[in-house]
Design a protein around this nucleic acid. Structure first.
Ligand code: FES
Ligand code: FES
Lengths: 145, 145
DNA sequence: TAAAATAAAGACAAAAAACTCTTTTAATTG
DNA sequence: CAATTAAAAGAGTTTTTTGTCTTTATTTTA
């Protein structure tokens, strides 16, 4: 198991990819995204439909259509993608699967785990979608393989 | 999604429970464990069979049989349960699902994520199975609800 | 306005995870 | 040794996740 579902992994990688391509000045088709992030094309299409409905990415049909992001999206935290796709379970859930994580009824790992969980939350809230455009363009960071 | 699979959550809670009961001086049946950690009984039975094969828990059939742990298990890190059940993916895997996490081909979240991932690893390696027996007996920590 | 390009939508299919039920094996005890 | 207890084993089932395939709707452009 990863930290995120496969769907969420694809979603984050796709949004990063679209963000990069937008910053380079263009729209990008589902096919190109799928190749660019090494994901199943039609599965990715579904994911992007959701993200599009939520306004996290923009899309246009027809020739020269494709996906892109607006300025607003670039300044949104990565946590928003996670919340849309996986919900907020990883930010508030109990490490050992108790119905709810609370100080009143803490599992054995509660104290140490909540510290780490909050770091994850903090990382994803302070990191914005557009933050990696340069590194991606320069090839310092990768979205496939 | 949680950090661990449901199977792994049950496994950890069950081992903690057995550890507590052993330290209180007794064996405990699958049924009692299932009630004690609020898990499906037969599903838990499968999990305990695995843990038993791996030597993480001990078992005895027949009247007054049940599960218990030995001294060695009490000093084993919680990470061992996780490795047996979920593998080492959460300790070495890429946050965004790249085939492998590496410095050579890092995903955008690599630097910040590996820090957190290492903290999780460290937490689970330095925390031993028997560490919570007292808190569990005193009712400070909980394994159900 | 016809053809081409592209996202949206919907219906399936496969695989994995989570869970249930039944039978068998082993140990104990009266 | 018969009855009882309890884990081990095995054969399903259900649900969720992941992935595929086909059709439809929209937009552009020649
Ligand atoms: S109760 Fe388990 S992490 Fe808080
Ligand atoms: S490459 Fe993604 S976390 Fe290291």
């Amino acid at each position: 198991m990863g930290l995120f579902s496969k769907t969420c992994e694809y979603a984050i990688r796709a949004v990063f990819f679209i963000s990069q391509k937008t910053s380079e000045g263009g729209r990008v088709s589902i096919k190109d995204i799928a190749v660019g992030i090494d994901s199943p094309e039609h599965f990715l299409a579904k994911i992007l439909q959701d993200l599009s409905k939520r306004g996290l990415v923009q899309s246009a049909k027809g020739p020269n259509g494709g996906f892109f992001v607006n300025e607003n999206t670039l300044r949104r935290p990565v946590a928003e993608i996670v919340e849309v796709v996986d919900g907020n379970g990883i930010f508030v859930g109990c490490a050992l699967g108790l119905k709810e994580c609370s100080e009143k009824n803490p599992c054995p790992l509660h104290n140490q785990f909540t510290t780490i969980r909050d770091e994850i939350h903090s990382l994803l809230r302070t990191t914005n979608i557009g933050d990696f455009n340069e590194e991606l363009i320069l090839g310092i960071n990768s979205l496939k393989r």
